[in-house]
């Protein structure tokens, strides 16, 4: 193998953006948020859950969806929803309808 000249070598100790850097953080969850789409206002004037989610896993578009692969289950969305449209249920999985 031919040795590269040292001046040509660029050291790339640079991290690249990657989804799920710490793995599937949904595994951390002990409670799972479930959205009742009928109770949700479905209006852009609210979006409080989206705004307050620290991890930004709630979609900006209606009907709102929570990315359960990465949701850490903190429960802020359920607490802050003015219409109580989000409930936290025990366990890591959302119930199958």
């Amino acid at each position: 193998m031919k040795k590269e000249k040292s001046s040509n070598v660029i050291i790339k100790a640079v991290s690249k953006p990657f989804k799920g850097e710490a793995g599937k953080t949904g595994d951390w969850r002990s409670q799972t948020p479930v959205i009742d789409q009928e109770k949700c206002s479905q209006k852009e004037s609210c979006l409080l859950c989206w705004m307050y989610c620290p991890d930004g896993v709630i979609s900006r578009e209606f009907p709102l969806e929570i990315d359960l692969e990465f949701c850490k289950g903190c429960g802020i969305c359920a607490q802050e929803c003015p219409r109580k449209a989000i409930t936290m249920i025990d366990g890591r999985e959302a119930p199958v309808e």
Binding site: P17, G20, S45, G56, R60, E69, K72, C74
Partner: peptide, 28 residues
Amino acid sequence: AAKLLPKEEYILPGTRSCAACGLMLTYR
């Protein structure tokens, strides 16, 4: 209103921060 905040997220989900991290929300 919340709807006036930019849509784009600059932190990808799946970070090492604790659940309900105040720093995370600040940084976001």
